[in-house]
Design a protein around this nucleic acid. Structure first.
Ligand SMILES: [Zn+2]
Ligand SMILES: [Zn+2]
Ligand SMILES: [Zn+2]
Ligand SMILES: [Zn+2]
Lengths: 388, 388
DNA sequence: AAACCAGGTCACGAGGTCAC
DNA sequence: GTGACCTCGTGACCTGGTTT
């Protein structure tokens, strides 16, 4: 089974990669030929960049966009601050530098985490844990890499920022009034990424149409909500009036408070959250690991779809959970990985509950109906490529 | 094989350059020691100039010659407007400025391009496509630089402007009558650049006399016509009465309409068009890439010349096409490069067809005969340097 | 032996400076 | 405002130690 997630154009065939390593993309800037450097997938230039700048104090330098630069091959030279920040975000670690003897004293706030990583490795004698190579096989690294990039592509932070900034074209009074509408637009944009994301997960495309349809229907709300957490973080949605005013107006204060709480409790390492999304897609509703979402049969008036081969779907889910967990061990050591993993699942359940509560809201229903209709439409074989 | 195209004086030997980098000329002002700055070949002073003025609004400033200043080392200080315009024309890019806060948000059209490039990379296995340095080797940059300058030297825009302006010495009525004659003079000037251009392409000079003769005969019309497109643009020939009146009178409305259409469809980046010219010189008429021009045997009454070593000529053509294409990737990214390249070849074919249609015109025949005779004469060994 | 991933190197091309 | 000359960040390519 192949694990590449092609970010290819719609008209291109889903070709299998011949050489897995050459496809892995840099998690910092997005170019090809990424390898593991300093603990994360990146290209040689980002590796060199990190080596040279890891000791830089991030709080010193300011950036023109206030830390919101989008890092691409073209823009990576313009803002060292944001590039370095992204290096750390994707999991690159100062501690893996050897030569330029990173002064142990300078590490102020990152110290506890690092100690945990190292100390836990020796405590738990799982045979490979003390290895500083990861448990992830090469194909798994590639797959991980592809998932991260697929997420970044289909749930676009720049797009989200544009939507947020659009409000400032209007005077204050109008902005207040527009907030709920704008919030719905934001949500719509988030949910609309779900299907394109899923269709680029190779495993997903191998499922029969009915199963794909069932999974999307069942998990759309949960995936959309969960990926919304990451988008909200990266685009700083929560500090915008659109969210502050719009969200409570749509969903009420209870759901809003819950959502904010979940948002804060969700693991701060976005990579983990992104890696959980594919697993959420293959959530069958009957497994224990991931939350069962009540089926939408009531919503659509037709009977529940049943998966043609539930075991197969569960295997796919396991495939992605394994990658996530191995990565977490690699990144945080066994003990912390277990704790974080449990917390991640907990917040995923909370998120599921919360979106269940929010589901009663009429406007939310309309939104979901529209999205699901669009998706259903595009999932029909002849229209499969319309929603790109 | 050496790739330098000497723009040396006729009496100088065709010496191989010992230091390739020192020969590259600034595409803006023409002085030596050019390097790549902001995406194009230029000297340090033009680099500084661009850095300081790139954010200038071109539409604000007017220039004395209405935007037609010729930029040389002497004149470059006199008109900032035209110098900056030329900077952009030769391919210098604002986006490559770092400090002077080119807003990331303002890049409206370049952002999707990047995305496109990334998504297509998996399909096209050229591994260096997303390299932010160009694929061009140093000698290739030098060669590119030399071709550009050779073109500017042998197909002189100032000369063209002088010819255009000469008409205004006469009263209106006479101008009308003179238009066809003047048009032929213009065309003659364009075609007369072909041979001097070709003889300064080093590869061309290494061919045996017979082959050179065959290639010039065969491709003269196409090269002349194609280079005429650039000259017409830079000297704004099409807005002159000489063209408006003279051209249709010589060639008829059909050919004129076609010519104007081709003129408009040809890639707006003159650099690309200039780089295509050497490839047109080595058009053997049997290759698929570039258009087959019907041999001129009917025209001259003698049998077709055959090339002594067609493979060699094709290799030379490949040499220049490679430079062109690598430059296009460097400049526009892979996907847009492919599209533009296809369009370029298309217009080249159109141009070939159009000049084939124009060939029946008697006056054109006379013109071509004169040019070819002159060229033939100057190609004879003892006269090789007469037509400079 | 091959792979992976540390560090090292140096040409390239950004920005900055200052006499003019 | 111009441009010769400077500093320095960048990244392709290399070396070398370690694991498989
Ligand atoms: Zn990178
Ligand atoms: Zn920044
Ligand atoms: Zn110059
Ligand atoms: Zn001017």
């Amino acid at each position: 089974m192949n694990c590449d997630n092609q970010s290819s154009k719609k008209h291109e065939p889903l070709n299998k990669m011949n050489n897995p390593t050459s496809v892995a993309l840099c998690h910092v800037c997005g170019i090809e030929h990424a390898q593991v450097h300093y603990g994360a997938m990146c290209c040689v230039s980002c590796k060199m960049f990190f080596r040279r700048n890891a000791q830089l104090n991030l709080s010193n330098r300011k950036c023109a966009t206030n830390g919101k630069c989008n890092i691409t091959i073209k823009s990576r030279k313009t803002c060292r601050y944001c590039r370095l920040k992204k290096c750390f975000t994707i999991g690159m670690q100062r501690e893996l530098l050897r030569a330029s003897h990173n002064r142990q004293g300078t590490r102020c706030k990152s110290t506890p985490k690092e100690n945990v990583v190292r100390s836990t490795i020796t405590v738990y004698p799982l045979d490979l844990l003390q290895n500083d190579r990861s448990l992830l096989k090469n194909e798994q690294w590639t797959c991980l890499s592809n998932v991260i990039h697929l997420f970044d592509e289909k749930f676009s932070v720049p797009q989200m920022r544009d939507l947020l900034n659009a409000q400032y074209l209007f005077p204050m009074k109008i902005r207040m009034k527009m907030a709920p509408t704008n919030m719905l637009t934001l949500l719509s944009a988030m949910y609309q990424g779900v299907y394109p994301f899923a269709t680029n997960i190779t495993h997903f495309t191998t499922l029969p149409l009915n199963d794909r349809s069932t999974l999307i229907e069942r998990n759309m709300r949960n995936i959309g909500g969960y990926s919304g957490i990451i988008l909200s973080r990266d685009a700083d949605v929560h500090s915008s009036p659109i969210f502050k005013i719009g969200f409570p107006e749509i969903y009420g204060t209870q759901v809003t408070d819950d959502a904010i709480k979940i948002y804060k409790n969700t693991d701060q390492d976005n990579t983990l959250v992104k890696l959980l999304i594919p697993a959420l897609i293959f959530s069958t509703g009957s497994d224990l690991l991931l939350p069962k979402i009540e089926s939408k049969c009531d919503h659509f008036g037709n009977s529940c779809h049943l998966l043609s081969n539930e075991k197969q779907v569960l295997e796919m889910q396991n495939f992605y959970v394994e990658i996530l967990f191995k990565y977490m061990i690699f990144r945080y050591g066994f003990k912390e990985a277990v704790i974080r993993f449990a917390a991640l699942i907990k917040t995923s359940l909370d998120q599921s509950m919360c979106s269940l509560n929010g589901r009663e809201v009429r406007k939310h229903q309309q939104l979901m109906e529209t999205i699901v209709e669009q998706t259903e439409h595009s999932m029909a074989p002849q229209n499969e490529i319309v929603l790109y």
